[in-house]
Simulated assay, not measured.
Amino acid sequence: MILTLNQVTKKFGDKVAVNDMNLELNEGVYGILGANGSGKTTLMRMLATVMHPTSGQLLLDGKDIFQLDDAYRDLVGYLPQQVGLYKNFTAEKFLLYIAALKGLGKEQAKQKVDQMLRWVGLEAHRREKVGKFSGGMKQRVGIAQALLNDPKILIVDEPTAGLDPKERIRFRNLMSSIAANRIVVLSTHIVSDLEYIAREIVIMKDGQLIKKGNPQKLLARLDGKVWLVTISDAQLAFYQEQYKVGNIIRRENGIEIRVISDEKPQRAAIVAAPNLEDLYLYYFD
């Protein structure tokens, strides 16, 4: 199964949200990484057929996904950035309702809802109204509804925004466990969500694909460009103005900062192993 974007462009009036994108996706987790406004959500919505491109083609195994219509949508699970839940429904009732919309039979729907509630850790809360759920619990309901039809293509847009660290780890582990034999497209600006689960990272900026590759390959490009520098309080403002500065840690002998720079920022700077947060800062201010 191959999902292909061929010169895909999406415009809103004079604004170009996605610009001439070419991309090929196979089974595995793909992380779409970019700052807010980089075009990630527009790309997700086109992949989910919620939105048509202005030009270009989106193809599944060589066939236009919009011409495939329901045959394509039957393969897709979609978790948008804002999950639309009926707050007066219980988790179980809501999932049964979505299962019916997706064409599952009554018995199949019941079995699938039971499975999903166990999978996302909400079995004990199945008869509670989703309007009283925490943000993390609502996201788990969202991912459960996206998985009801056992999709071969799973599209999730900013799934961990607003979640606490424990919920984010739970979500990442869930994504890893279901990634086999599926295309999972995960859009985020939280780099740690991708560090352990992404097969490849796609970096978007101003609607364009600027880099693509597995995390190790992308990080290798930053070798020799990440530095640890110890400075005084008085020097901090200068370094923040002149360089891209990541972590700032106060030590007994001064302030240790993590600097992303093509050139060594000072004689005493120590080269450090790059991580995905460094990668993000390298491409985005």
Rank of each mutant, 00 (worst) to 15 (best):
L5K: 02
N6E: 15
N6S: 14
Q7D: 12
T9Q: 02
K10P: 01
F12K: 03
K15S: 09
V18M: 03
L25R: 00
E27F: 06
G28M: 04
V29N: 00
G31Q: 03
I32V: 14
L33T: 04
N36L: 05
G37I: 07
G37Q: 06
G37V: 07
S38I: 03
L43Q: 02
R45T: 07
M46V: 11
V50L: 14
P53K: 08
S55A: 13
Q57Y: 12
L58D: 05
L58N: 05
L58W: 08
D61H: 09
K63H: 13
D64P: 08
D64L: 10
I65C: 09
F66Y: 15
D69L: 09
A71N: 13
P80V: 11
G84S: 14
G84R: 08
A91Q: 02
Y97V: 00
I98A: 00
A99P: 00
A100K: 09
L101R: 01
A109W: 04
V113F: 04
Q115A: 12
V120A: 07
G121K: 08
L122N: 07
K129S: 10
K129I: 09
F133E: 09
G135V: 13
M137H: 08
I143C: 01
N149F: 07
N149M: 06
N149Y: 07
D150N: 14
P151I: 06
P151V: 05
K152V: 05
L154E: 05
I155D: 03
V156F: 06
V156M: 06
D157G: 09
P159C: 08
P165L: 10
K166C: 06
R168M: 11
F171V: 07
R172P: 04
N173S: 13
S176D: 14
A179V: 09
N181S: 13
I183C: 02
S187W: 00
H189L: 01
S192C: 03
L194D: 00
A198K: 00
I201E: 00
I203D: 00
K205Y: 06
G207K: 03
Q208V: 11
K212S: 11
G213S: 10
G213W: 08
N214D: 15
Q216V: 13
L219E: 12
A220S: 15
R221P: 03
D223K: 15
D223F: 09
V226F: 10
A234T: 14
Q235M: 12
A237E: 15
Y239I: 04
K244H: 10
V245W: 05
I249H: 12
R250A: 10
E252R: 11
N253M: 11
R258L: 07
I260Q: 03
S261Y: 10
E263S: 13
E263N: 13
P265Y: 10
V271I: 14
V271A: 14
L276W: 09
E277D: 15
D278K: 06
L279Q: 05
L279V: 11
L279D: 07
Y282P: 01
F284C: 04
F284V: 07
